[in-house]
Nucleic acid binder design. Structure first.
Lengths: 206, 206
DNA sequence: TAAATGAATGAATAGTTATTCATTTGTGAT
DNA sequence: ATCACAAATGAATAACTATTCATTCATTTA
């Protein structure tokens, strides 16, 4: 086993601390997360957070930014992938929403903890508002293109985007609350079930 | 203006404190909610929570129980109402989900705050698991009856129940995060849009 | 009207936790 | 090797907050 070097690039240390924060929020809740817990989980000393983030509040903000960036960047990679058809992009979007990296219970606990605080913390709110808007625009566009490509008459792309997004968030909650009886594959099945209702020619088979 | 009497039935005081707690969680977040805030918002003294709930933690548990009971009881009243047809019950369920009393942003903030802590607090988790299970059973039954009554061939009642429930939770999130551009009526429209895809004969008109 | 009751108060306490910073330690340059 | 520098440490501090409980006060009872 290689020893962890005492000195490390600042970015690596920051990511290490953010990952410990995610675990800690999942384990103890946002209200039960202390600096002592986070640094102990990271295997580092108490003062390290001050060194890399100045305050606890800034560490929490960067933690929220980390999970929103991970989500946004993953979807952008799909959206801007020239090798995928529109249908394939939508399929990839669903697969990503319920992939190991994203539909992870630790991260889901973090999402919900921060969502619960958005009303009281403008900083949290604006971080969330940003990514939501960008993703909605891209997804609406995909549905709109598919509608035109395949001549779906009565589809309302914006409504379908809002509906799919809400459905996906609600399925995340089911994964968080009932992990024993409800798995990522079940969630994916339900998401596809909805898309079939709107685009039966594209999502009915396989 | 009538003076608030100094002495009041215990139940009334407890409800008063729970309502102050809901406002306080919405205003300051779960992690930022202090006994001083809650009691000040209720217009009472610091020691009152200890008198009526023993500890802060028990006040929080009762607050969660309050909103889950309110939700469950409201839906039970619909489900067991002999005067409503199955279709009317489902319509009433949707209307209730996005009614003033339920889709209130203060209460939504409380829901999400507690959901974010369910992974770390078994008590919160079991309170949520209970109501979810009961509601799912009743709603699945409604979809099942409607399927048989109206001869819908390919509807899977259990899947539709999970899908509707997730959709409703996700729409609550949209109401919490984007209250300016997304209103309860928009949420209701989207929920009905999904039900139409499954039961076009019942939910397409009006 | 006076005494008894118990709900409500809030100053004081005890415990917790974020933050600070003097000291230690590893690393790379000379 | 030695030095200079930066990263990391953790004991001490300062701030905050849940809980306690002796006291106050309104209401009820005799």
């Amino acid at each position: 086993m290689s020893e962890t070097p005492r000195s490390l690039p600042a970015k690596t240390r920051r990511k290490q601390l953010i990952k410990a924060t995610i675990k800690c929020i999942a384990k103890n809740g946002l209200s039960g997360t202390t600096m002592a817990d986070v640094t102990k989980l990271a295997g580092l000393s108490l003062g390290i957070v001050n060194l890399h983030f100045e305050t606890k509040e800034k560490l929490l903000v960067e933690t929220l930014r980390f999970i929103t960036d991970e989500y946004r960047n993953g979807l952008d990679k799909i959206f801007f992938n020239e090798n995928l058809s529109t249908e394939e992009k939508i399929r990839a979007h669903v697969a990503f929403d319920f992939s190991r990296a994203i539909a992870d219970r630790n991260k889901l606990a973090v999402w919900f903890a921060f969502w619960g605080e958005t009303k009281s913390r403008p900083t949290y709110h604006s971080i969330c508002a940003d990514y939501i808007d960008e993703i909605a625009q891209n997804l609406t566009q995909l549905f709109s293109i598919l509608k035109n490509e395949q001549n779906y008459q009565s589809v309302d792309p914006e409504l379908v985007c809002t509906c799919y997004t809400a459905l996906s968030d609600g399925l995340w909650l089911a994964l968080l609350l009932t992990p024993k009886s409800f798995k990522a594959d079940d969630a994916k099945t339900i998401a596809m079930h909805y898309l079939k209702t709107q685009f039966p020619n594209n999502f009915t088979m396989t």
